[in-house]
Amino acid sequence: MSLDKDTIRKIAFLARIRVPEDALDGLAGELSNIIGWVEQLNEVDTEGVEPMTSVADMDWPRRDDEITDGGRAQDILANATDPEPAPGGEDGNGGGFFTVPKVVE
């Protein structure tokens, strides 16, 4: 399967990665090469084989319905670009918002 520029554009948008127009051709070639190489998997007869969901075959831990976290808005917001304190929340753990460019719905 060879991937064309349009496909690259489409998956780049799905992945929200800006790819400069002049890089599309090169990327299309590289990805086509990789996809072509992985397609050797089609040789394998997998009729009736279950796909693996995890190599870990065990009873996994579950949590009790208890509040063990939260109340740490300062930590949560510490690394954010341009956070907005909540009204009255300037002192840290009183809360605050992450911000993004305005979304018009």
Partner: peptide, 15 residues
């Protein structure tokens, strides 16, 4: 383990 109660200050019930 963060709480689910309604109406808390923003991002205070976030793990």
């Amino acid at each position: 383990g963060a709480a689910t109660a309604f109406g808390a200050a923003p991002n205070t019930q976030v793990s």
